[in-house]
């Protein structure tokens, strides 16, 4: 069986006045049907731009310069805007960090949801409304009729994000791309959203790409993780294996940096320095200047290797015992 989504050597560059920013620089990954992939990275690692590239949402001066995005057998890069438009919102949906950005503040929820249904399905308005009610019920919103007649500002943050998720679910997409959907929410509300998403993916068989900076959130949610640094995937593999035994020094540094579970008031292991500018990346491995294991071999260009079965790492000195 072929993967639902196959991304090969994707490159999205931003042509700025100061030079070319290689936001995504040769990213390769795939997502199976029903699978949850966690795409993890810090700000500027290119994780969001990767998500935007999949849906053709990169605005100038940014541009997908090369690579393939094969969704269910069709190349979206070669197909251009037309190919993506037929899928966007129907077979691939997106959930953004800030639901206020997704929702139009001057339209009732009803107007926005019905519009989404009618954009891709030839049904009556009554039928469309029924689908909207069902979608709202599915994300745990009681009294959907009341909610449909409201405006976005009348909702709390968690409720808005539920509506955004409901809109993403309207056409029962094969793939949902979620870009930091719980970052702006409180812990208890985040847990509610995570629970809903987990349930929905299990019930409908929807594949999910969960983009986040928070390793702890995806560690309990995703089947596989892909860790990005400076526009490239540096480590990829099954979630449980990566969390238990990170091979790349950056992944290890990220996990060590999280205070939870570390001895009380101990100094945290920190990654020295800061992320490099995308305009001026170090040659070879981009993590080299911050890496405790770096030596001259790291100056050469790095490829994604497979030191252990199922584990892909872009590093010449991965943490492997023995």
């Amino acid at each position: 069986m072929t993967a639902l989504l196959d991304v090969r050597d994707l490159k999205t560059h931003f042509f700025t006045r100061d030079g070319i920013a290689k936001a995504v620089d040769g990213v390769t990954f795939s997502v199976e049907r029903g699978e949850i992939l966690g795409l993890v990275g810090e700000s500027g690692s290119g994780k969001s731009v990767t998500g935007f590239s999949l849906l053709g949402l990169v605005d100038p001066p940014g541009k997908v310069v090369s690579g393939e995005i094969v969704f269910d057998g069709a190349d979206l890069v070669a197909g251009g805007e037309e190919a993506i438009r037929g899928l966007r919102g129907k077979r691939i949906a997106m959930i953004f960090q800030d639901p206020m950005m997704t929702l139009n503040p001057v339209l009732k929820i009803e107007t926005q949801m019905v519009e989404t249904v009618l954009a891709h399905a030839d049904v009556s308005r009554t039928e469309a409304l029924t689908r909207c009610r069902e979608a709202l019920l599915r994300v745990g919103i009681s009294a959907p009729d009341e909610r449909l007649a409201s405006y976005p500002h009348q909702f709390s943050g968690g409720m808005r994000q539920r509506v955004a998720i409901a809109i993403a679910l309207l056409h029962e997409p094969d793939l949902i791309i979620a870009d930091e959907p719980t970052t702006a929410l409180d812990v208890t509300i985040q847990a509610q959203i995570l629970a809903e998403v987990q349930k929905l993916c299990a019930e409908t068989g929807t594949a999910l790409i969960w983009i986040t900076h928070d390793l702890a959130v995806v560690s309990g949610l995703a089947d596989r993780l892909a860790v990005m640094y400076a526009g490239r995937i540096v480590e990829e593999g099954p979630t449980s294996e990566i969390i238990a035994n990170p091979l790349h020094p950056y992944t290890r540094g990220l996990i060590e940096s999280v205070p939870h579970g570390k001895p009380h008031r101990s100094l945290l292991q920190q990654i020295k320095g800061m992320a490099p500018s995308l305009l001026n990346l170090p040659e070879g491995c981009s993590f080299r200047p911050r890496c405790p294991r770096a030596d001259d071999a790291c100056r050469r260009a790095q490829t994604l290797g497979t030191p252990l079965p199922g584990r892909h790492v872009r590093c010449v000195h991965p943490y492997i015992e023995g």
Partner: peptide
């Protein structure tokens, strides 16, 4: 509800 590193789902 605090998300923590868990090896298991």
């Amino acid at each position: 509800e605090l998300p923590t590193f868990e090896v298991k789902r």
